[in-house]
Nucleic acid binder design. Structure first.
Length: 284
DNA sequence: AAGTCGGTCAACCGCACCTAA
DNA sequence: ATTAGGTGCGGTTGACCGACT
């Protein structure tokens, strides 16, 4: 028995999102929150499937997204995290407030892979490329496949994944995410970077919000999370994180204020041109 | 100017996982 | 314990764009 498709694909629109669709989705989520992604497109009047709406929101429309290119420090942190976590992009992204897993995955595949290769490091195993080449040579000379598999880069990666390092990395005994106690140096480096990034985003976000009526309103009225952002490193706007996937804005925000915010964004930016502003968006 | 190529990134697909019934 | 629905995740695709010939 196969899984049923997430939605009836017949009659649904695919491909790039239009400005109108973005507006509909944003207006709906900000007014009503997210209770069930499957229902979002129907209630918002969109001819999209719920998954598509979710992706669009997470990767593009979310207000707390940090836009613009990655800094070298971020790239270095990314490489460090990848060496421990492998291709678990969402886990890696969780260390970069305001960044999405898709964004990090794309950046890795298009930039960092090349950078590492150029530096003579295998982007998959984070070992010197010569070592990998030796293994490849062994593959040619030794026919016993199983032995090669266990010593292959993939095998080593899998092995490292199974050591529990990742579990320690992601969650310590207190349930806090971070590096294992044994890796004090790495942990400090990453956490400091993360904290800096979080503070940057917070600062930029407040600047951003300050330029928008809604943002000012939210900050002044002490919306959930916004008042505690500096303590918790949370940059989650007033939208609760994906675990809860619900938004309280709609109940507490005056509808006209929402519209005012959307309109003010409209007046400043064309949504299509959003990316053009890049990182400058948060520094204007 | 036109064609080709390579890089980038938004979006889709399918599977895995989680959870409620 | 089982099942089905909802969501998350990672791999992949394809459109777009600029550089190059």
């Amino acid at each position: 028995m196969g899984r049923q498709p997430c939605c009836d694909k017949v009659g649904l629109k695919r491909g790039p999102w239009t400005i109108e669709e973005d507006h509909k989705l944003m207006n709906f989520i900000l007014n009503n929150g997210i209770h069930c992604w499957r229902m979002v497109p129907k209630l918002a009047g969109l001819l999209r499937c719920g998954k598509s709406c979710r992706l669009r929101w997470i990767n593009y429309l979310r207000p707390d997204l940090k836009r613009g290119g990655f800094t070298e420090a971020e790239e270095n942190q990314m490489i460090q995290l990848h060496s421990c976590l492998g291709n678990r992009w969402s886990k890696i992204a969780s260390h970069f407030p305001g960044r999405t897993d898709n964004e990090i995955k794309n950046h890795w595949n298009t930039r960092i892979k090349k950078r590492l290769k150029h530096l003579g490091e295998d982007p998959l195993t984070h070992k010197p490329i010569e070592e990998k080449e030796n293994i490849e040579e062994n593959k040619d000379t030794i026919t016993q496949h199983s032995n090669i598999t266990s010593s292959s880069p993939e095998g080593e990666l899998e092995e490292s994944r199974g050591t529990g390092l990742e579990a320690k990395l992601l969650e310590d005994s207190n349930g806090n995410k971070g590096f294992p106690e044994s890796d004090e140096k790495s942990r400090n480096e990453v956490q400091l970077t993360t904290l800096d990034d979080a503070n940057d985003i917070l600062k930029n976000y407040e600047v951003f919000c300050g330029s928008l009526d809604l943002g000012t309103l939210m900050l002044n009225q002490g919306f959930p999370n916004t008042s505690s952002m500096s303590n918790s490193y949370s940059t989650s706007f007033s939208v609760e994180d994906s675990n809860n996937a619900s938004i309280s804005i709609g109940e507490t925000m005056q509808e006209n204020c929402l519209q005012q915010w959307v309109d003010s964004v409209d007046s400043m930016l064309s949504w299509d041109g959003f990316n053009i502003f890049g990182q400058d968006l948060f520094f204007f």
